[in-house]
Structures are given as C-alpha cells and as structure tokens.
Design a protein around this nucleic acid. Structure first.
Lengths: 338, 338
DNA sequence: GTGAAAGCGCTAACAT
DNA sequence: ATGTTAGCGCTTTCAC
C-alpha cells in the first residue's frame, strides 16, 4: 500500500486540528466550520494530494460504503448488463461495488460471501440463486441487507428483483401459436434454478391455454454446449413431431440453432427457435434470434435501489419486484412447416 | 453494517487474550501458539461465527488485500474474460477485486481511480488506455503498483500485458492474400487508443509486405454501430474496389457485416470480413466471423501475475508482455470475387 | 507460549 | 467555531 498522506498532515499544513479537517472535508459537516478555514483546509488537502483512508473511516463509522455483488458467471452475457445497472446507480451515491464471480461453484460462493462480509460490505446483491448455502443462514442472522437478483432462492426472506418470466413465455408461445405451431419443445435449464423452474411452469400454463402440445427437456447447464447436446438428442429421435423450440435462455437457444444446422435442417424453415433474455448480439446470430427482451440494466438498477432502501430502512417485507418484458421477433421464428 | 463479532469476544470465549486469538487465526503466526490453545480458539471462533474485520486489519497491516480493476466498458465482451482471468488468479491468493466500469468516460475514470485509492487498494489493473488523466501522474508519484492491460498508455512507465497485434494482423492479412484479395479496407478504432494505432500500423506493414492496396478508415468508437456507420459510407461510394475488410475489433467487424447485408451484398461472396479478438459467440454470427483469437483470460491472468510481482518486489522495469495470438478462420472470409 | 499496551487513520462526543 | 479525547477492531512489539 502506497505511502499515505494522513489527515494530520493536512491539519498541520492548514494550521488546524485534525478534527477540523475532517469536518471541513465532509460535505455533511462542512457547515460546522468557518468558511474561510474550510477553504484553507481544502486547499491544503489538494496541495498534499490527500485521499481520506476509507478503511479507517469505516472502522469509525461502521460503514464501508461498499456493496458486494455475487454473480455465477461473468461470461454469461446477461450479467454485465445487470452489473452496469447496479454500478450506475450506486457509484453516484458514493458506493463502490465489490464483484465476485463464483463460476457456478457453491464452494466458491461460500468463500466469496465470507470474503465480502469480512470486507464489511454494507449490503449484498446475489444473483446466483443460492438455495442451500449454509452461509446464507448465517447471513440472514447477521442482519446484513441482501437483495436477490434474477434467480430467487425460495424462502430466503430477501427481496427479489426479476423479469416477468410468465409474461415473456406467454408472449412467445402466443407468437408461435399464431404462426401455426401446435407442437413444441421447451429446453429448460437446471431445475435447481428457480428461474428455470418458473419458465418451465409458465410454458406448461401457456401451452395448455393455447392447446399446444408440449414436451420439456432439461439441460444440465445454461450453456450453448448443453443446449446443443439436448437438441442433438431430440433430432436424433425418429419421427420428429415438434415444429418449434422455446429455450429457457438465449444461450440454450443458440445451442439448439447449432444442432439444427448440424443435422442439415434449417431454422426457421424447418424448426422455429425462440430464446429468452435478449442477450447482447442475439440479433447478429444466424438467424437473428427471436427472444424475450428482459430489461437487464433496469433489473440491476432496481436491485441497487432495493438494497439502498434496505440499508436505510432496515429489512422490509421481502417483496418481489417483477419488471415487464417484451417479445422481440427476429428471423428464427416463422410459420410452421406443414 | 451488520453487528460484528469481534476478536475479543472470541478471546473471552476461548479464555485467552485477543492477541492470542489473532496469532492462532493467522496461519503465518499459528506456530507461535500452543497447538491446544489454537484449537480451542478456532473452535470458539467458529461457534461464534467470527469473521475478522479486514478493514481493521488493513489499518494495522497497511494491506487491504484488495486490488482495483478499471475497465472502460463491461458490456464489451472482451472484458469479462479478462476479468475472469484476473479474479481466478487473485482469489486463491486471498485478494478480492474491486471493479470499476467507467463507461468510457475520462471523468468517471478519475473518480474511479480516486475511489479505489481511497479504499486502499494494494494495486491497480487498468484497461482503459489512460493517456492524459492527471490522476495518473499522481498515481505514479504515489508509488501504487499499476499494471496496464490490453491498451497501453504511452510512456506511463507501467508494465503492459497485451496480445500480439502485429502477429494477428499479419496472419489475417496473409490469409486474405492467399485467398486472392489484393485491395482491402482497415476499419480502425479511435486513434487515441494505442491498440487501435498499433493494429493500424500493423496493417500498413502487412499490406506493404504483401503488396496489397490498403485504405484505412477510422471509427469513432469500438461499437457495432460505428462499424456499421463507416462501412455504410464505404459502400455508398461508387466504384468499390476493395474485396476485403479487416476490422480492428470484432464489434467493428459485426457492424461491417450489418452494413454489407443492408446494402444487399453478401459476405463472404462479395466481401470478406475479418475481425480481431475472437469475442464470445463470434462463431455464431451470420456468417461465423473469421478473426484473431486473443487469449483474453490469459491476459487477465498474466496481468494479475505482473501486479503481484510489482506488489511484492516493487516497480520493476516497465516490461511489455506480449501474448501470442492465432487466426481463427470461419465463414466470413472466402476467395476474392474476380 | 501468552498477556499488556500501543497505535494504524479516522470521526464523534464532549469541552471550550 | 475549533480543539481534546477516546475508541472503532485489529496486529505487533515488548514483556514476562
């Protein structure tokens, strides 16, 4: 750590006591000190290139002005947008975010949580869908404000911010229905994720409502590879009867696209494919992916807002904030081949 | 901040003095304390769910075990991979990364740097190509270890980790040459980025060496939109003579692809396009993008490694670490149309 | 091998 | 309006 200019050096230069420097430099207490003195202090601080030591301050104020963000996988393109929303909302408030990418591992998640807690974060935004982590219990006992994003662990008692999966799935299924599709596949994500479960359930309801045939297959991870794998299996079966695929995420849809191409079939002529999330560049794929646009950055912003509220007002009721989504029709869906 | 179990509560429960707890819990000093006592302390700590307060410790040790990472834009898909490399290397060493996304703004970058410095980061990895930020001068005076990634600001005296742009451009140009292309466009990025300049220079050299005609156009930002805009302008000109485009980044190449499509031309039949970086999903685009694969995660790892070295050994010579890259040929390049 | 005491840089009571 | 004092939780001499 670099040699640090301390508050007392500034005090000496300005010819005042350290506490006066502290007051002069803190906007909230600036009014307590004589304006001329304040100006002198500020000049001194600038000339010395003084940066207050936030750790020392935090030790005193019991506020770190830091919040922790835990995500399962930074390379999943939905998370950067969410993070951007969080940072964009928090930075102007003076908060800095400590980011932990836990790479989908439970063990890493535990160590990330404890590392963040040790660093005295003032709150935590968790996007991993923690369900059974033992630390979470500890966490909730500790009273540290937590907001869940995107994936909600059941019964944690924390606020959850998420897109409206039900609405998105319904819009997509209706779109497919209007194109004449009557028999479809849902590629679900791992059922340990609440999002995957929610979307699969929404599929069942939507297909019943539209009297469409539905078959659900489950991918073991939310990756292109797993989407490809399950679609491979589907296409290898004799007598294919489905004409459309609704994937639980764009990544899975992308895998389906790959498999379809590999089998010498065409999308959308032979099979329509629809995704979920509208990840960046979904439009550039081949073909451009019809998908449900989830307001990722908004979700980030809203979760930051919820966290600020929880920090200020203490734990409220564990409300669920659901943001509206919209269908984006592109080239991967077309009338059902008859 | 949550009510915190302190070291003295652990000490009381274990029936020892706080300093003994400190020694017992720190692996480096554990040997100083009686094994049985240590065990008792550890049990007590666990039962109380004790987490050491890293800020308090840092105040004493002058080590925050935190490093700051400044990137220009999280939603640019090359950065998550780099960050992942950094975190992957640092987390096992006990370091946590404080991430600041400065959204391409110089003002934000300054405030991010000062926010990180205030938080006593032990070092900084900067991927924004800081050139004239006044804070950087201050920074280098302060002696805080810094490593530059990807984009090197000229003459900063900091180590730089980057991919081998020259090698990548050469490989791509030679590939295009062997396909019969003799007249090409380089879509350069903003010339304020050293990477953009370096790749443009490499283009000049490579084209001279292969006696290819080259024209360089400059995009005002590294985005799909700007790539599309400059390509639009190119295609609107009468008597197009080029048959291939080498973009400075994949995002720019993607924009070119869009423009080509919009003008009713085909890639690669009419125009070949090659990118740079091999961003995630470059393979899924339409057509799959020929590009230069840059070992992004490796770059992150190496920059973390360099930073650790600088933290341990003090500033070394400001070496430049250049990692090899490779050409990935996909569907966007084909023989020149005659 | 363990305890006592001091102090990291800061802010918040309290005093003046 | 400013100075004094104490203490946040921890580690680190220095004693014993």
């Amino acid at each position: 750590m670099a040699r640090q200019v301390t508050i007392s050096e500034v005090a000496k230069l300005a010819g005042v006591h350290a506490s006066t420097v502290s007051r002069a430099l803190n906007p909230a207490t600036r009014s307590l000190v004589n304006e001329k003195t304040a100006r002198r202090v500020i000049t001194a601080a600038e000339s010395l290139n003084y940066f207050p030591n936030i750790m020392a301050r935090g030790l005193r104020t019991r506020l770190s002005m830091t919040i922790g963000v835990i995500i399962p996988d930074l390379t999943n393109p939905i998370f950067p947008s969410i993070i951007r929303g969080i940072e964009g909302h928090l930075a102007p408030l003076g908060y800095t975010t400590l980011l932990a990418d836990v790479d989908g591992s439970n063990a890493l998640e535990d160590s990330a949580i404890s590392s963040l807690v040790q660093r005295q974060v003032d709150g935590l935004i968790i996007a991993t869908g923690v369900e059974q982590s033992s630390l979470v219990k500890t966490l909730s006992e500790s009273g540290l404000p937590v907001v869940l994003v995107n994936r909600g662990a059941s019964e944690t008692g924390y606020p959850l911010v998420t897109g409206d999966d039900d609405m998105g799935i319904r819009a997509s299924v209706e779109h497919l229905h209007s194109l004449g599709h009557r028999n479809m596949i849902h590629i679900a994500g791992p059922q340990s994720f609440s999002t995957s479960r929610g979307r699969a359930d929404a599929m069942k309801r939507a297909c019943e409502g539209n009297s469409m045939q539905l078959r659900i297959v489950e991918a073991s991870a939310l990756t292109v590879e797993q989407g490809e794998r399950v679609t491979d299996a589907l296409l290898a079966e004799p007598n294919r009867s489905f004409t459309a695929i609704q994937a639980s995420t764009d990544l899975l849809a992308l895998g389906a696209l790959r498999a379809i191409r590999k089998f010498g079939l065409r999308c959308p002529e032979d099979i329509s494919v629809s995704g979920f999330n509208d990840m960046p560049f979904a439009e550039e794929f081949s073909p451009g992916l019809t998908t449900v646009r989830v307001p990722l950055e908004e979700i980030g912003i809203e979760s930051a807002r919820q966290l600020m509220r929880a920090i200020k007002d203490g734990p409220g009721s564990p409300l669920v904030v659901t943001l509206p989504v919209s269908l984006v029709v592109r080239a991967s869906t077309a009338p059902a081949s008859t």
